[in-house]
Structure formats: structure tokens, C-alpha cells
């Protein structure tokens, strides 16, 4: 038996919008810890890890660990039928091949049940080791989205370099090149507007902008994005989900031949 009630149902809607274009189908895992997902894109270049902790739900019942294979496009279609203020409850049972999404209006005067078929998905679960990163950049998520969009109109790849001076985003394409530098900038009144750079060592890595632009679909979930870089590791682009957990996108770098 599975019953997860989320007062702020819009969070789940936003999560789906953030990942459905990157990953078409995935197993959602439900355990005492929370509702989670780990999936790779079809090219196996990027990986998304989602965690919504059990404490963040208004009601969380998960009698035993359950994995639900879901087509994310279909789930997104169903969640789009929930109103922006609706409370969403996810219901499932062992041994059935469906999951039910229940939408309740704030006033409790409209209750909808959407039943969706589950599917068998044979997915690989990868172990993500804890790592020390050479540089960690925290910046406004809207600023990062703007940079990725702007650079995506010029080139296909972005070189992200962190030095004492700041974080530099560089691209080159047929029409020319672009270079954007963001310096550390702390705002006491509005910490979410700050750009904070923690650097142990300078680092410079190249990534496909197509993926970065896909990650920025999570911008609505958090005002701040954290970008963790190390020369021997995939970049981690993390959006915290208020008091509930996170979406982390991992992207393998492009390396000079």
C-alpha cells in the first residue's frame, strides 16, 4: 500500500516538466526515506536524480519498498490536469499495474482520480560516489538559465571555467564566440540573488549546451542553482526543492581527443 499526499501539488507538476524531455521513462522508487528516481537520458550522457523526502509530504504511507515504472510523458499529461493549487495524492498497491493520482481542490469541492498504467522498465541503477569538488558555484537559477539560453544560440558546447576571478562561460560557433563572466557577488538582503564561488582549485570543463538547457527547465523549482565541478567527474547541476529534497542533473564532460 502506497499513499503519498502532497499539499503543494504544483511541486510534482514542476518536477515532471523539468525531467520529462530528458528522460522518457523511469522507475520511481518509494521507500521510508522518500519518493525518488534515478534515470539516464537515452544517450547515457546525462543522469537525473530526484529525491522528495517523506517528511515533506503531508501524509506518507509506504508499507514496503515499491518501484513503479512510469512513462514520464504520460504522467505529465495526467498531472497537467491538476489545478495549480491542487493537493495531489499518489496511490498505489502491490501487485497492481496502475498508479492513481488524486487531485483535491483547496476547498475540497472537486476531487479527481486519474488512473495510469505502469510499465516494466529495465533500468540500470548507478552508484554515485560522494565527491569533493574542485569548485562549487551557487548562483541565481534564472541567471544560469539565461546564460545557457544565450550561449545556445551561438554554439553547441560551453566551457565552464572557475578561477579566483569568477566563473566564466564560453562558447564558439559559426557566427562567432561569446564569453560571460560572473563574479562573486554577495547580497545580504537577498541571498538568493548572490553568486558565491567556493574554489579549491581552478577548473575548466566542456559540456554540451543542449543538456544544460534541458536542465534549466527545473528553474521554476528553485531560485538558486548549485554547479559542482571537478576535472575527473561529471558536473552536478542541483536545484533544491524547498524543504523536500532536490533534483540533481549529472552531465559527463566533453574531452579533447
Amino acid at each position: 500500500m502506497l499513499e503519498l499526499r502532497l499539499i503543494q501539488g504544483s511541486l510534482l507538476k514542476k518536477v515532471l516538466e523539468a525531467i520529462k524531455d530528458l528522460v522518457t521513462e523511469a522507475n520511481f522508487d518509494c521507500s521510508a526515506t522518500g519518493f525518488s528516481l534515478q534515470a539516464m537520458d537515452s544517450s547515457h550522457v546525462a543522469l537525473v536524480a530526484l529525491l522528495l523526502r517523506s517528511e515533506g509530504f503531508d501524509h506518507y504511507r509506504c508499507d514496503r519498498n515499491l518501484s513503479m515504472g512510469i512513462n514520464l510523458n504520460n504522467m505529465s499529461k495526467m498531472l497537467r490536469c491538476a489545478g495549480p493549487e491542487d493537493i495531489i495524492t499518489i496511490k498505489g498497491d502491490d501487485g497492481t499495474d496502475t498508479v492513481t493520482f488524486m487531485f483535491e481542490s483547496q476547498k475540497q469541492d472537486k476531487i479527481s482520480d486519474f488512473e495510469m498504467k505502469l510499465m516494466d522498465i529495465d533500468s540500470e541503477h548507478l552508484g554515485i560516489p560522494d565527491a569533493e569538488y574542485q569548485a562549487i558555484v551557487r548562483m541565481p537559477s534564472a541567471e544560469f538559465a539565461r546564460i545557457c539560453k544565450d550561449l545556445g544560440s551561438i554554439g553547441d558546447t560551453v566551457v565552464i571555467s572557475v578561477t579566483k576571478e569568477g566563473v566564466k562561460f564560453f562558447t564558439r560557433g559559426d557566427v562567432g564566440s561569446a564569453n560571460i563572466v560572473c563574479r562573486q557577488n554577495t547580497s545580504v538582503d537577498k541571498p538568493e540573488d548572490s553568486t558565491v564561488i567556493e574554489m579549491n582549485e581552478p577548473v575548466s570543463l566542456t559540456f554540451a549546451l543542449r543538456y544544460m538547457n534541458s536542465f534549466t527547465k527545473a528553474t521554476t523549482l528553485s531560485e538558486v542553482v548549485t554547479i559542482s565541478l571537478s576535472s575527473e567527474l561529471p558536473v552536478v547541476v542541483e536545484y533544491k526543492i524547498a524543504e523536500m529534497g532536490y533534483i540533481r542533473f549529472y552531465l559527463a564532460p566533453k574531452i579533447e581527443d
Partner: peptide, 14 residues
Amino acid sequence: DTRQFEIKTYFSKK
């Protein structure tokens, strides 16, 4: 030229 690596190059199978 740059080569795109797969994520599995870095993270092992659980």
C-alpha cells in the same frame, strides 16, 4: 575535436 563521454564511464553499476 572533443569526445562526449558516457555517464557510466564515471559511475559504476550498483
